[in-house]
């Protein structure tokens, strides 16, 4: 094993190789790998794990496993068919692994390298710089689904809920809700970034959900933004994973995040509340009488949001529940409209 590792290392990363040709994106790659038909997936994972570790790349083993599994057509190394683990890779496969791994050496997030990731059982396309959904957000979706299941059928209508998602990014929240809610449910997904709008649209089409989602380029921090949403009528729910990182924390984010992901999707301003406040201030204009807002926030926010809401009694919004994520951090907020349908301009 050790010998193999050394040979691999020498062949893949040693000096004195010919310059790359034949469609190679990286000049450090050999034009034709002499290892084709000799190296197994398991050995390749060990090799790249060692390389990543040496270069200080985080999640060295996980990264190399995901890359090798992806090239062999599996989602995780664990789920790779046993026979494929020991079978030698073809030269094309080796080249592919080489190319993807070299991107990882540049600290590109694995999700962008693979160009896809899974969320709530859905396979979504991922493309820089659109925000990569985090595992915590799967729990936000779970919570919304739980509450929806418990809600008695909306009075007078047989329809599923009408949901507004603010800051849809890749479309993860909107599409996973639609895929699990009744057929009549609809989502209006807004984002101010063109890249996010395009990616959500592409993912909706991949999942055949394009008929139940309206994707609208919209900046919720602009004045009277909500007027654009009036044609669709009042919403049952507003869901959002808004940018909530405190501005001063932005510097401390890992290179994977700050060099590749759009900071607009992360930076929530001084107290991480900028977009949260915009959403809450206008929620009463958009929500039905008993509508709710579900937000993912950071652990300091439940207190901050609670006291802000108390300072804005005219909004008639109550923080009714805070839920912790799987690591025990207060992460999700359920805010409900309590007061009269004040000044709602929407004719219903």
């Amino acid at each position: 094993m050790k010998l193999w590792g050394q040979m691999l290392w020498a062949l893949l990363s040693g000096p004195g190789r010919k310059g790359g040709t034949r469609g190679w994106a990286f000049s450090s790659c050999p034009p034709h790998s002499p290892l084709a038909g000799l190296v197994s997936a398991t050995e390749l994972v060990s090799h790249w794990t060692a390389v990543f570790e040496e270069r200080g790349i985080p999640e060295a083993r996980e990264s190399s496993e995901y890359i090798v599994a992806h090239v062999l057509g599996a989602k995780t190394f664990q789920s790779l068919r046993p026979a494929l683990r020991t079978q030698p890779l073809t030269s094309q496969q080796l080249q592919c692994v080489q190319e993807l791994s070299s991107r990882r050496l540049q600290r590109m997030p694995v999700q962008y390298i693979l160009g896809e990731w899974d969320f709530q059982g859905l396979n979504l396309k991922m493309a820089p710089p659109v925000f990569i959904p985090r595992p915590e957000t799967e729990e936000l979706v779970d919570w919304v689904l739980e509450e929806e299941a418990q809600r008695p059928c909306a009075a007078g209508t047989q329809d599923g809920p009408l949901i507004l998602e603010v800051g849809c990014g890749s479309g993860a929240i909107a599409l996973s809700l639609l895929s699990q809610l009744p057929q009549q449910s609809q989502v209006i997904a807004v984002d101010k970034e063109e890249a996010a709008i395009c990616l959500t649209r592409e993912n909706a089409q991949r999942l055949q959900l394009q008929d139940r989602i309206r994707i609208v380029p919209l900046d919720v921090t602009l004045e009277r933004w909500w007027t654009h949403l009036l044609p669709w009528g009042p919403m049952d729910l507003v869901v959002s994973n808004p940018p909530y990182v405190f501005h001063q924390d932005m510097e401390q984010l890992a290179p994977e995040i700050c060099s590749y992901e759009d900071p607009v999707a992360l930076d929530g301003g001084k107290e991480g509340m900028d977009v949260i406040i915009h959403i809450l201030a206008l929620a009463p204009q958009l929500l039905k009488g008993s509508g709710s807002v579900f937000l993912e926030v950071e652990p300091r926010h439940p207190g901050l949001v609670g006291s802000w809401l108390r300072s804005q009694p005219d909004l008639h919004l109550d923080l009714v529940a805070v839920r912790r994520d799987f690591c025990g951090r207060p992460r999700f907020l359920h805010i409900r409209r309590s007061g009269p349908q004040c000044g709602c301009p929407v004719g219903t």
């Binding site: 996980e62 985090r134 915590e136 909530y244 984010l253 890992a254 799987f326």
Partner: peptide, 20 residues
């Protein structure tokens, strides 16, 4: 008790881990 690799640090938007 549910152990994951995200247990340490800030979690959420602050980190992007793939170890699931």
């Amino acid at each position: 008790r549910i152990d994951t690799k995200r247990a340490s640090g800030a979690g959420g938007q602050h980190v992007n881990t793939t170890d699931s």
